[in-house]
Design a protein around this nucleic acid. Structure first.
Length: 204
DNA sequence: AGGGTGATAAACT
DNA sequence: GTTTATCACCCTA
């Protein structure tokens, strides 16, 4: 399968993020319709991006071909998934922030037993849990069916008038860049929270 | 509704 | 040693 955004340069990552709204992502028996994403640029271009300071062992798949999955671990307990954008050698990615479970809801409920249906994929770490992903998905393709994740175009086209843009959630840097995109009036969109600085543990 | 905070580990400086 | 693209839970209204 080939899509036009797979050939887009990394500089177009914000447009690609918009494009991916309304797409379905399926993994391990659960299908989610994307309602919220964020764009992250490459080396030097975006202080909030993991690729900002160049390639490292963690972010190397961001520098690979588009359509692959970049999975990373945050806060000691959560996994988050991105779709890599840009040409091979360029770094950019779209963070999958939230979606609505449209298939396999029973499985999704089992994976997060205490959440309401609306919350099952509301937030990047919850979305990853709903899809049953972990580090094994890192570096796999999300467009050719060889990996655990598969992206498919919207069944019903998204009305561009419903797309809203704003600052990214929880990021410490580039707070003024409106690179978070979501669909208006979707209950599965995560609530906005500004980055809150961590305090050091109190000395004893 | 909204704000604060503890949990907990890896990557990076 | 410091930071972190989060979540769940507890508090005040």
């Amino acid at each position: 399968m080939t899509y036009t955004w797979l050939d887009a340069p990394a500089a177009d990552v914000a447009a690609t993020a918009r494009t991916l709204l309304g797409w379905d992502v399926s993994g391990n028996g659960v299908r989610v319709r994307l309602t919220e994403v964020e764009a992250y640029a490459g080396t030097g271009a975006d202080p909030a991006s993991h690729a900002h300071r160049g390639p490292t062992p963690r972010n190397r798949v961001m520098f690979g071909p588009a359509g692959h999955v970049y999975v990373y671990f945050v806060f000691g307990m959560h996994w988050c998934a991105n779709i890599v954008c840009g040409r091979d050698g360029e770094a950019a990615a779209v963070l999958l922030r939230a979606g609505e479970v449209v298939d396999g809801i029973g499985i999704a409920r089992d994976r997060r037993p205490h959440a309401s249906d609306r919350d099952l994929a509301r937030g990047p770490a919850r979305l990853v849990t709903a899809l049953g992903l972990d580090r094994d998905a890192n570096g796999t393709s999300a467009v050719d069916g060889t990996g655990p994740l598969l992206l498919t175009p919207p069944v019903e086209a998204v009305d561009p008038a419903r797309v809203v843009a704003g600052p990214r959630v929880g990021v410490a840097a580039a707070h003024d860049l409106p690179w978070r995109f979501w669909l208006a009036d979707e209950p599965s969109v995560s609530v906005y929270r500004r980055h809150s600085p961590r305090r050091r543990p109190a000395p004893r």
